[in-house]
Design a protein around this nucleic acid. Structure first.
Length: 568
RNA sequence: CGGGGUGUAGCGCAGUCUGGUAGCGCACCUGCUUUGGGAGCAGGGGGUCGGAGGUUCGAAUCCUCUCGCCCCGACCA
């Protein structure tokens, strides 16, 4: 491809609304163009990288035994009503009506359609397992789209769904998908880590996310530096020891006058005790009513963990308005003794501890010597707190670390959630109807490309990993000298003939402009042809990643380029 | 959904307070000079100032409504 015949528009200035590096560079390099919030055009250069990644994904999916199909972006509401997600999915579901006023949605994911497809096409255990995938544009009406391709409302995703007759079979496919995902990210030279994850809106029993570690990541990843433990902070646990707490003698329940101590820090200061020895009370509103969660004073409650434990759809901090009527105590002095809350949860770090200091459900009053089982009903113990950096690893006890990460892939064991609600069954060897056991596997295409840029760039532009670079090589002619143009054209044509993905910068521009553009777009290899070096029989060969220039004969440059390009 | 900000040429911005009919840089076109890391000079094209309504002799500027976009929070694949 010749630059002058292509469609590239690089920007010297950064668009004002781009705030992460991948978005800035993709916009400046002319790869994407914003059309509306979270909605982008993939310009020719950007589309090339997307297509290259898609090809890699197809290869690895096919290798893993998955079979490609393509489902519609638009889906009838009935399927979503059947699975129950028409109500549950919320405002992110982009809903539309057709001319007959019938309800449809733009698909954010395809569990419903694939389940409908498979229940129709599979009736015997002999046809299972099957693993189907597609690469397609998804729609999620995000509350706050941002960061370019990182969080769009319209985005390209690879999604696969597998159907099985047994847990073991699901485990096998799940494992093969995890291997395929790692292979894909490795081929893109992405520094990634698989971690345990919450299942969120999709549901199911187990799930892992593939995280690319990057400062701009929107997720927090907890990892252990010595064993392989890694988890999204939503899911992460720690082996949390409470060394300070010895059961000791059981005290009597006694009120303490604690005027003006609304926060846990106030109480700690007032009583002269570290907050770790106090109990913090959190109250949430759910669709079933108010719920209380008790955590150690120096820890933070995890809404996701609490929500999962309760099995509710809605969980939010209880507002001021109906606080007292729901809990029986004022804000700041709320506690488990005599509470009106329906359920009381307590973090595992409190288990076995005696003589709790808790809110007294009366203004300016706390209670000491509160003992579960005696002074208030035994709470439901569980892991309800957020892991902090430095907490002991749940597996080996080493201090955990927390990093920012970008979620580029997510695999789930769905079990029978959709097959049961949607009656997706097969006949087993005995002729009995059984729900299929399902798995699903998502991979964000645009997000992966953006992540590659997040991980690999410098002040001048993108440094592409060769496999997803829009072009592998740029041939830059420097000046209009006849011999230069002739040599550059010849090199370009030979590279083309050798099957190398090459762009010929044949523009009538000053060298500085061409080099700056080449660095910005980030072609992994560059051959520059200029009059001075050509007079000595040389062209200049360099890699984008180190920009070390080598003077080579045209033949050597050609051979080296072909070797480097074909190598991947 | 709450809070804050912003909308003027393809991109980055000034002009708005104090009303007088739109400007700068980049990009683009023409010419000359230049030519190995975003050239110089000269000339030129391009904007219903987000939209609607109002006030006024006159509105980018003041008022009302509305829409888009951005940030923080809440929420969430």
């Amino acid at each position: 491809m010749r630059w002058t015949r292509y469609f590239i528009n690089t920007l010297r200035e950064v668009p004002a609304d781009a705030d992460v590096v991948s978005q800035r560079l993709m916009m400046r390099a002319g790869m994407i163009r914003k059309v509306a919030a979270g909605i982008y055009t993939y310009l020719p250069l950007g589309l090339r990288s997307i297509r290259k990644l898609e090809a890699i994904v197809r290869e690895e999916m096919n290798r893993a035994g998955a079979v490609e199909l393509l489902m519609p972006a638009i889906q009838p509401a009935e399927l979503w009503m059947e699975s129950g997600r028409w109500q549950k999915y919320g405002k992110e579901l982009l809903r539309i009506k057709d001319r007959h006023d019938r309800d449809f949605i733009f698909g954010p994911t395809h569990e419903e359609v694939i389940t409908d497809t498979v229940r129709d096409g599979v009736s015997s255990y002999r046809q299972l397992p099957v693993n189907l995938y597609q690469i397609q544009t998804k729609f999620r009406d995000e509350v706050r789209p941002r960061f370019g391709l990182m969080r769009g409302r319209e985005f390209i995703m690879k999604d696969s769904y597998s159907f099985h007759t047994s847990r073991e079979s699901l485990d096998e496919t799940y494992e093969s998908m995890r291997i395929a995902y790692s292979a894909i990210f490795n081929r893109c030279a992405l520094d990634h880590v698989p971690v345990e994850a919450d299942t969120g809106n999709i549901g199911g029993s187990a799930s892992h996310e593939f995280m690319v570690l990057a400062q701009s990541g929107e997720d927090a990843v907890v990892s252990c530096p010595s064993c392989r433990y890694g988890a999204n902070i939503e899911k992460a646990t720690s082996k949390f020891f409470d060394a300070d707490t010895q059961p000791g003698a059981i005290e009597e329940l006694a009120p303490i006058h604690t005027p003006g101590t609304k926060t846990i820090d106030d109480v700690g200061r007032f009583l002269g005790k570290p907050t770790s020895q106090l109990v913090k009370t959190l109250v949430f509103q759910t669709e079933n009513g108010a719920v209380m969660a008790l955590v150690r004073g120096d820890r933070e409650g995890s809404e996701i963990k609490i929500k999962n434990h309760l099995g509710v759809n809605m969980l939010e901090m209880l507002g001021d308005a109906d606080f007292e009527s729901s809990t029986g105590g004022p804000i700041g002095y709320c506690g488990p003794v005599g509470t009106k809350c329906l359920r009381v949860l307590a973090d595992a770090s409190l288990k076995g501890r005696a003589n709790w200091v808790v809110g007294g459900n009366k203004v300016d009053t706390h209670l000491s010597g509160a003992n579960p089982g005696r002074d208030f009903p035994e709470p439901e113990f569980g892991d309800f707190t957020v892991v902090f950096a430095g907490d002991p690893c749940p597996r080996c006890g080493t201090e955990l670390q927390i990093h920012r990460g970008i979620e580029v892939g997510h695999v789930f064991k769905l079990g029978t959630k959709y097959s049961e609600s949607m009656n997706c069954v097969y006949l087993d060897e005995k002729g009995e109807r059984q729900p299929m056991i399902m798995g699903c596997y998502g991979l964000g295409i645009g997000r992966t490309v953006a992540s590659a840029i997040e991980q690999s760039h410098d002040d001048d532009g993108i440094i592409w990993p060769m496999p997803i670079a829009p072009f592998e090589v740029v041939v830059t002619s420097v000046g209009k000298d006849e011999a230069v143009v002739k040599m550059a054209t010849e090199l370009y044509e030979k590279l083309l003939a050798a099957g190398v993905d090459v762009l010929f910068d044949d523009r009538d521009e000053r060298p500085g402009v061409k080099f700056k553009d080449a660095d910005l777009i980030g072609f992994p290899l560059r051959i520059a042809v200029g009059a001075k070096s050509l007079a000595n029989g040389h062209v200049e060969w360099s890699l984008r990643k180190d920009r070390v220039k080598q003077l080579l004969s045209p033949e050597e440059a050609l051979a080296k380029t072909i070797e480097a390009a074909i190598a991947n």
